[in-house]
Design a binder for these strands. Structure first.
Lengths: 345, 345
DNA sequence: TTGTATGCGTTATCAT
DNA sequence: ATGATAACGCATACAA
C-alpha cells in the first residue's frame, strides 16, 4: 500500500501510562492518579512520574479514558453555518466557556436542512459527547428520539420553545419583530418592506413584523425573500426590487432586514442611487454586528447579546452535566440599538 | 450531588453491539461486520441485524472503536479565529472535503499566541486524531516536537515553508505583496500607505510591500498598525490617521490594506470625507471576500482561492493517512481582482 | 499512599 | 459466512 519509502518504519508504539510507570518505578494506576488527582500521590512519586512523562513525551489517550470512565469530556455543537458571523461569534463565546470547564468541542455545520442534521447528530452521538448543543428548536422526529434516548444534556439555542428536548436558551423572535413593527409605526412610518434571508428564524420575524405592522394600521408589507444566505450583494439587489414596487414610490418606507449584512447592502444601494437615509428611506438591521455602528450612516439594528447567549448555553450544559437543577428555558433579552438610519417622530 | 429529583434514575445502560446481536440472533462480531463491511455478511443476517439496530436505537461507540482500531476517524484543525471570515470560509471548505472522506473535525481556536497553541495541540493529540491541521508555519519548539513524536500527518496552511513539519499548503505572502507593490508602481502611484492588522502574515505582507514599493522608486510607505483584529471601524480610523500624515497631502496615495474589511472601512471613511475613489485615493484590499465586488465602488483586492486551499489541505491529509506519496509543499496561486478602487495608468 | 483486578465496547486475528 | 478470543489504554473498586 505504501509507496513512500519513508513510511516503511514499523508503526511506532504509543507511550502508555504503563511505560511511564515503569520508568518512574510505579504502577499504571499511580500514573493515572498523578494526572487526574495529584493530591492522592506523594510528593516524591509525583515528581518521578512527572519526570517520566516529560522524558517519554507521554500523551494520554482520551479515547481509552472515555471508554473506561464513560465520560468523553467532549461537547458537541451543531450550527447552521460557521461563515455566518452571527453563529461564529456565538460559538466563540460558547467554546470559550466550555473550554474553561475542561471540555473540548466537536463542531459541525448542519446547513439549514433538517435531514442533514439527523445524520450529523448520529455521527456526533457516536463520539459519546457529554452534552450537545443544537441550533433552533425544530428538529426531525428521529433527531429528537435519538437525543432523548442518549440521555445526555441537550441545549437548543437561538429560539424559545415551550417544549424543549431538554433545555433551551434563546429569545422570542416573534416578539422581537413585533417590537420593531411597533417602533416603526410609532415613529410615523406607514409603509414598510422586509428583506429576508433563507433562515426559518428570519422568516418567522418577517411574518411577525408584517402582521403587527399591518395590524397597527400600516400598509401591506412588501417582502423580498432572497432565497439564500444573507450578503451585501443580495441586500443591494433586494432594495432595488423594493424600490421598483409601486407601493414604495409614495413616501419614506421603513425597510426591515433579517440581518445587518442585508441592511448594509441596502445602505450601499441607497447611497448609489442618491436616496437619502433616513430622510427618504429608513433601514433597520438585525443582530447588531460590530460593524453596524461603523457604517455611514450608523445602522439602527435590533441588538441581541450573542456573547451572553453563548455563555448561558454553556452554563446550562455544564450545570446539567453536574446534575444541578436549572430552569429549562432561559430568555435572552433584546433591544433596539438606535442609530441614524431611522428617523424618530 | 444531584439535587434534581428527575435525575435519580439509574444510569441507563447504553445499547451495545452485544445487545443488538442478541436480538438478531448473531454474535457481537457479526454486528460489527454488518456495520463496517456489509459485504462480508449474508443478506439474511444483514437484514436481521439492521432491524435489530433500528429496534434498539443502537449508536456505535466511536471511542471503543478508536481504541481497538487505533484510528479515531477524527481530524484536528487549529485556526487563529473562527469569527474571521477568512479562516471560517477556509475551514468550511476543508471540513466539507474531510467529512466527505468519513472523518469528523475537532476544531479549536488558538488565537495568535504561540503559547496557547501548545496547550491546544496537546489537548488535541490526546484525542488521537488521525491527522492535524495547523494555521501558519511558526510554532514553538515543543509544539513541533509533540507533532513529530505523534507520527500523524500534519498540514500547515496559509503560508509556505521550506521546512514544514510534514506538509504545507499555502501561498507566498511576500511574493503576493510584491505583486501588489509593483502593480501600484506600474500604474503610476508614487506614494503609498498600508493598514495592517495584528497578524504575522499581514505584517509580513506589509514589510514586503513597503520594501518593494520603495525599491521601485516610490516614496517611503506610511504604515498604520491597528494592533488588533481587522474591522470596518479600525479601517476608518486608520485612514483618518493616514490622511493626517503630511506626506499624504501631496497626491493620490495608494492604500494597501491587510484585509478587505479594513479596505471597506477606508472606503466608508473616504466617502464620508468626500474624497473621490479612485481619483484622489486608491484603495486595495486583501483576500477578495465575496462582498468586495458588492461595495461602491467595487473593491480591487488580491484574490486567494480559499476554497481551493481548504480542499488541497484536506486532500494532502487524506493522502498522507492513506500512505500515498505527496509533495510536501503545495503552492496556491493568487491574482489581482481588478475593480474600480484603483486607477490604471 | 500504592497496587491488583476488572471492565469499558469495539476491532483484529485466527478458527471453524 | 460466522464465531471465539485477545487486545486497545485507561479508570474504578477494592485490597493492602
Amino acid at each position: 500500500m505504501t509507496l513512500d519509502p519513508r513510511n516503511t518504519d514499523p508503526p511506532r508504539r504509543r507511550v502508555t501510562m504503563e511505560d511511564v510507570g515503569k520508568i518512574a518505578g510505579v504502577s499504571q494506576v499511580t500514573v493515572s492518579r498523578a494526572l487526574s488527582d495529584p493530591s492522592k500521590v506523594s510528593k516524591a512519586t509525583l515528581d518521578r512520574v512527572r519526570a517520566a512523562i516529560k522524558a517519554t513525551g507521554f500523551v494520554p489517550n482520551a479515547a481509552a479514558g472515555a471508554l473506561a470512565s464513560r465520560r468523553s469530556r467532549l461537547i458537541s455543537a451543531l450550527v447552521p453555518s460557521i461563515t455566518n458571523i452571527v453563529y461564529s461569534s456565538f460559538i466563540q463565546a460558547f467554546s470559550e466557556r466550555i473550554r474553561a470547564n475542561g471540555y473540548q468541542i466537536l463542531l459541525s455545520e448542519t446547513g439549514f436542512d433538517h435531514h442533514d442534521e439527523e445524520a450529523t447528530v448520529l455521527a456526533h452521538l457516536s463520539r459519546q459527547p457529554d452534552a450537545i448543543l443544537l441550533t433552533g428548536i425544530h428538529h426531525s422526529r428521529e433527531t429528537r428520539r435519538m437525543l432523548l434516548a442518549s440521555g445526555i444534556p441537550v441545549v437548543e439555542v437561538w429560539d424559545i420553545s415551550d417544549t424543549p428536548i431538554d433545555t433551551c436558551v434563546g429569545f422570542d423572535h416573534a416578539a422581537a419583530a413585533r417590537t420593531v413593527a411597533e417602533f416603526a409605526h410609532d415613529n410615523g412610518y406607514r409603509s414598510a418592506a422586509t428583506i429576508t434571508a433563507a433562515d426559518s428564524r428570519a422568516r418567522q420575524r418577517q411574518e411577525s413584523f408584517a402582521q403587527h405592522f399591518e395590524a397597527a394600521g400600516g400598509a401591506p408589507v412588501v417582502d423580498v425573500d432572497i432565497g439564500g444566505p444573507a450578503s451585501i450583494a443580495s441586500g443591494r439587489t433586494a432594495l432595488t426590487q423594493i424600490l421598483a414596487s409601486p407601493d414604495m414610490k409614495s413616501t419614506r418606507p421603513f425597510v426591515f432586514c433579517s440581518s445587518d449584512l442585508l441592511a448594509h447592502g441596502a445602505l450601499i444601494e441607497a447611497a448609489k442611487r442618491g436616496i437619502a437615509v433616513p430622510r427618504e428611506l429608513a433601514v433597520m438591521g438585525f443582530g447588531d454586528q460590530d460593524f453596524a455602528a461603523a457604517l455611514e450612516p450608523p445602522l439602527t439594528s435590533l441588538r441581541v447579546d450573542r456573547e451572553l447567549l453563548g455563555h448561558r448555553a454553556a452554563d446550562a450544559l455544564i450545570a446539567r452535566i453536574d446534575g444541578h437543577p436549572i430552569t429549562d428555558v432561559t430568555r435572552i433579552s433584546f433591544e433596539i440599538a438606535l442609530r441614524d438610519t431611522v428617523q424618530l417622530a
